[in-house]
């Protein structure tokens, strides 16, 4: 894993990748900082960091788009696969290299609050909280990007896919307020999810009897739930969608609250995407 990590980090700095990422991010961040904090004479640095999320969303694809697509194009994936490194090691090495470039960039922006601290009093707890939150949020973004880079065939498509994916996770918070919240809607939603799961099972296992039985059980279970405890189904869709909202969990960090559940959420979110990436590579070997 360390070998892949070192190699990936090298190639970030041997190619324009890291410089474009850092340059673009720091340029916009610097501009925003000057306008929002310096010229306005505002010492609310955490607010500035929160507004950086959107910019970060724009530049993450630059960081992750080449992770796997470039290996595929140069046919160097064979080198990694034929060397004594595990697939999880490959994925993790690449992911951590991208996270390192991101963390280094974040470290540079720490000059800003340092600069502000000469001129006013800073709420350091809040700033540290926001930075930690930002780091975990960014790592989760990078995990999505890593996964999509494995899925895509070219750097361009990887970048576009990643951008759309991150944008979707960002607007989830807005979507939530528009989805229906009634118990009936929740019941229908569960049935749709169950239907999709059964369809996937059917296409893999090709066994009608089990699928039909599962469908009957699912319908019965939902009916019972609906009759016995309709409250449980209330607002289910928005709760479900909220699981995927990366940014909503960030809010607490920017208030200076370090909550373990949010950290675990981000870590497991990243772990999930890295796991899926690894199993996709593994699957490709078998098919």
């Amino acid at each position: 894993m360390i070998a892949v990590y070192k190699k990936e980090l090298k190639s970030y700095f041997y190619t324009p990748g890291a410089y474009i990422f850092m340059g673009a991010f720091l340029l916009i961040a610097g501009l925003l900082f000057s306008l929002q904090n310096v010229f306005a004479g505002d010492s609310n640095y955490a607010g500035f960091l929160s507004s950086l999320i959107f910019i970060f969303l724009l530049v993450v694809p630059i960081l992750t788009m080449k992770l796997f697509t470039e290996e595929k194009r140069q046919k160097t994936d064979i080198l990694l696969l034929s060397s004594p490194v595990s697939i999880i090691g490959i994925v993790l090495g690449k992911y951590l290299a991208a996270v390192t470039v991101f963390a280094a960039t974040l470290l540079i922006t720490m000059l800003y609050p340092l600069f502000l601290s000469f001129h006013g009093r800073m709420d350091w707890a809040q700033i540290w909280g926001t930075y930690i939150g930002f780091f975990f949020l960014g790592s989760a973004f990078i995990a999505i990007g890593t996964f999509l880079s494995e899925v895509a065939e070219s750097q361009t498509s990887a970048a576009i896919l990643t951008f759309c994916g991150l944008l979707a996770s960002w607007i989830i918070d807005y979507i939530i307020s528009f989805v229906p919240t009634s118990s009936m809607a929740g019941a229908i939603f569960i049935l749709i999810l169950a239907g999709a799961a059964i369809a996937v099972f059917q296409s893999k296992a090709q066994d009608w009897r089990i699928s039909a039985a599962a469908a009957v059980i699912a319908i019965a279970a939902v009916c019972i739930l609906y009759i016995v405890t309709p409250d449980m189904l209330y607002g289910l869709i928005s709760k479900f969608i909220a699981w995927f909202s990366l940014t909503s969990r960030f809010q607490r960090f920017s208030m200076g609250i370090l909550k373990l559940d949010a950290v675990i959420y981000y870590l497991s979110f990243s772990a999930f995407f890295l796991y899926v990436t690894g199993s996709r590579i593994e699957n490709r070997r078998w098919s």
Binding site: I2, A3, V4, K75, T76
Partner: peptide
């Protein structure tokens, strides 16, 4: 293993590349 298309990182020098291979192996 030398595959049909030699797996080389174009952005590295030959020596750096071999260092990376040493790392991997």
């Amino acid at each position: 293993y030398l595959p049909e298309n030699p797996p080389l990182y174009g952005e590295m020098t030959a020596k750096e590349f071999l260092h990376t291979v040493c790392d991997l192996k």
